[in-house]
């Protein structure tokens, strides 16, 4: 896998261990691993909002927060990041795995 040659560390869940090691090339690589060949402007809007929100609030935003605070319609989120959009987008954005609250 290409991400292995990029000299970054992943946690046990396969998420970036330190979100500061993230960069846009890494995001493109992670997206390919998740089956997303090309990151469109809309993808970047989601990724950038997630990173900003995480850095400001210390928590990976939920799907509802992406809709309400980030202005990203849920339907669109699902089509951008099929099958588990919150987890996939978080991984591509270099954030920890979202903790489905208990």
């Amino acid at each position: 896998m290409a991400t292995e040659t990029m000299n970054v560390t992943f946690d046990a869940d396969g998420y970036l261990a330190d979100h500061n090691e993230w960069n846009e090339d890494l995001a493109r690589e992670l997206a390919r691993e998740e089956g997303i060949e090309e990151l469109t402007d809309m993808h970047w809007k989601v990724i950038n909002f997630m990173r900003k929100d995480y850095i400001e609030n210390g928590a990976v935003p939920t799907i509802r927060r992406l809709k309400k605070a980030g202005g990203i319609p849920t339907k669109e989120l699902y089509s951008l990041f099929p099958d588990g959009p919150a987890k996939k987008a978080a991984r591509i954005a270099g954030l920890p795995k979202p903790k489905g609250c208990v």
């Binding site: 588990g84 987890k87 903790k99 489905g100 208990v102």
Partner: peptide
């Protein structure tokens, strides 16, 4: 369920 399994943990 919206979760990836029967429960969270």
């Amino acid at each position: 369920t919206p979760l990836p399994g029967a429960f969270t943990k």
